[in-house]
Simulated scan of single mutants.
Amino acid sequence: MTIRVVVADDQELVRSGFSMILGAQPDIEVVAEVGDGAAAVAAVRALGPDVVLLDVRMPVMDGIEACRTISAESDCRSVMLTTFDSDAYVYEALHAGASGFLLKDVRRDDLVHAVRVAVAGDSLLAPSVARRLIAAYTARPAPSATPTAEARLARLTGRERETLLHLARGLSNAEIAEALVVSDHTVKTHVGNVLSKLGLRDRVQAVICAYETGLVTPR
């Protein structure tokens, strides 16, 4: 399967560089390069790519607003790219539906990996971003379980709830399978059910949900 990608960045050299890196892969095709968020939304609507790389700061429409629109209208996965290592951008991007958040000094192998991971339904955060996100969560007061939160969690079976808990702790499918003493296939089924029942796009949103519903509390 060929992964079709749109690259959106207002700096021509940057988007050309990313396009060259991705286009050199046998399983990736860059179908469009655009310079602003509105053009990215239009390209996704017209071309139906699998992944869009979005710079956070762009003219006309910024990357986060573009991500929010794309996530609402399609199954295209958004991976955010920025030079700004800011907590605010991370939170906004993840809540907008981003499947990854990378800094522009990302290594080429990690950029390619992020695109493949996004298509697979997983997510990838730059290590520095992940550390900041975890630190920020652990500094917050523990969320209280509201009736709405309990109603959301009540949709899950006991095994699915356990799976969500392990997802929030950052375990891979193989690690979850070992913890639950089940097969990898069974874990994939549980993860799929969790995402479907809670209306989530990927594992990043599952982590956010686990914290917001109080299933996991910061330590």
Rank of each mutant, 00 (worst) to 15 (best):
H166A: 12
P26E: 15
A136N: 12
Y137R: 15
G100S: 07
L94T: 01
A149C: 07
V79L: 09
G97I: 06
M58G: 02
P26R: 15
M1R: 14
P127L: 08
S16A: 15
P127R: 12
A154M: 05
T213C: 09
R108F: 11
L165R: 13
G63C: 07
A72N: 06
E212R: 13
H185Q: 13
A93E: 01
E212C: 09
A39D: 08
V106E: 05
I208T: 08
L195A: 06
R159I: 00
A98R: 04
L171M: 14
T82Q: 03
R140A: 15
D184G: 10
I28W: 02
A120H: 07
L165Q: 12
S99K: 02
L198R: 04
E175I: 04
L102T: 02
V51A: 04
V119G: 05
R68N: 01
A96N: 09
R140S: 14
D110M: 15
I70E: 04
C76Q: 05
D87K: 15
S123K: 00
V181C: 06
D55V: 04
V119F: 12
T163G: 06
D36M: 02
E160T: 07
T157N: 05
F84I: 00
A8N: 06
L103M: 11
I28F: 08
P49F: 07
R155A: 13
L171Y: 15
V44M: 07
R57L: 14
T2A: 15
L53K: 05
L171K: 15
G100W: 04
V181D: 15
H95T: 02
L102K: 02
A139I: 01
E65A: 15
V56L: 12
L156K: 09
A40R: 03
S71C: 09
E12Q: 14
R140D: 02
H190N: 11
G199Y: 04
V106C: 10
V216R: 14
L198Q: 05
A32P: 01
L180D: 03
A114T: 01
T157S: 15
R201W: 00
G192T: 00
Q11S: 11
P26I: 08
Q205M: 11
A98Q: 03
A149R: 06
L156P: 01
G199F: 04
S74D: 06
I28N: 05
L47Q: 14
R203S: 06
A46Q: 14
A145Y: 00
G17I: 10
P147C: 06
P147W: 12
T82E: 00
E212V: 05
V182F: 06
P147N: 09
T189A: 11
R107S: 13
R159P: 00
A72F: 08
D55R: 09
R219A: 15
D50F: 04
D110G: 02
V115F: 10
G48T: 13
E92W: 03
L167V: 12
L156M: 08
L53W: 02
G35H: 06
V31H: 06
Q11T: 12
H190Q: 08
G23K: 10
T163R: 07
A120T: 02
L22K: 04
A98H: 02
A206K: 03
H95C: 00
N173C: 08
D9Y: 09
A66T: 05
G35T: 01
L156I: 10
D110L: 13
V6I: 14
L171E: 13
R68Q: 11
A43D: 03
S16T: 13
A46R: 14
V34F: 02
Y91V: 13
P26G: 07
